[in-house]
Simulated scan of single mutants.
Amino acid sequence: MFKKIFKNMSQENSENAEKDLTQENVINESEETVNEGIASAEELTQEEKLKEELAKEKDKFLRLFAEFENYKKRTSKERIDLFKTANQEVLQAMLPVLDDFDRAMAQISKTEDEVMLKGVELIHNKLKDTLVSKGLELVDIKIGDDFNADYAEAITQIPAPSEELKGKVVDVVEKGYKLGEKIIRFPKVVIGN
């Protein structure tokens, strides 16, 4: 009987032990599932963080790339403008010499010395052609044109010789020149009043 009781107790203990092991396994499995869930949640948040960082870096890259493209376009345009107007100071310094040649031509043409006239004409044309080859252009203003302050500078007003010349150019005192599209010296004109 004692053996029977002991045997029953051992069976009960082993059943209890099995129950305890089963409960412990269930608890362990539950903990593992919870831990896996937490780990997967951490991975998701870490994955989301990585995606956000990647999006930020892409945005920075695109902005930097756009800024660099704008820089290239701006410097290219500035360089082209610089090449167009690089000779501006030299050409402006040569304009009084060209004016002196024009006045000399007007005076020499009144004399009878054709050899001197021919020599001065050759030098005058050579200077003019050189300046034109560097981009210098004459601002086209003629007597009788409407006065436009954007293209000419009025130095004085005189009574108009006729009704047609009121508010128009009566005389061109000094020629104007432009380099490309930029006027480097405005023509000085007299307008009729």
Rank of each mutant, 00 (worst) to 15 (best):
K4S: 12
F6Q: 02
K7Q: 13
N8K: 15
Q11N: 11
E12I: 14
E12R: 15
E12G: 08
N13Q: 10
E18N: 10
K19P: 12
T22R: 10
E24S: 12
N25T: 13
N25S: 13
N28A: 12
E29V: 07
N35W: 08
G37P: 01
S40P: 03
Q46F: 08
K49F: 11
L50I: 15
E52W: 05
K56N: 09
E57R: 15
K58W: 05
K58C: 01
D59R: 06
D59I: 09
K60M: 11
K60T: 06
R63I: 07
L64Q: 05
L64P: 00
F68S: 13
K72Q: 13
K72N: 08
K73T: 13
K73I: 13
R74W: 07
S76H: 15
E78F: 11
R79I: 09
T85A: 02
A86Q: 10
A86T: 07
E89T: 14
A93I: 00
L98S: 06
D100T: 12
D102I: 04
A106D: 04
I108S: 02
T111M: 00
E112V: 00
D113Q: 03
D113G: 04
L117K: 15
K118G: 04
K118P: 00
G119L: 04
V120A: 01
H124D: 09
H124Y: 09
N125R: 00
L127R: 02
K128Q: 04
L131R: 05
G135R: 03
E137L: 05
E137A: 05
L138M: 03
K142A: 03
K142N: 08
I143Y: 06
A149E: 12
A149T: 02
D150L: 05
E153A: 07
E153M: 15
A154P: 07
I155W: 02
Q157E: 14
P159H: 10
P159M: 09
P159N: 10
A160E: 06
S162I: 01
E164P: 02
V173L: 06
K175E: 11
K175Y: 04
G176D: 06
G176P: 01
G180Y: 06
I184E: 05
V189G: 04
V190H: 02
V190Y: 10
N193P: 03
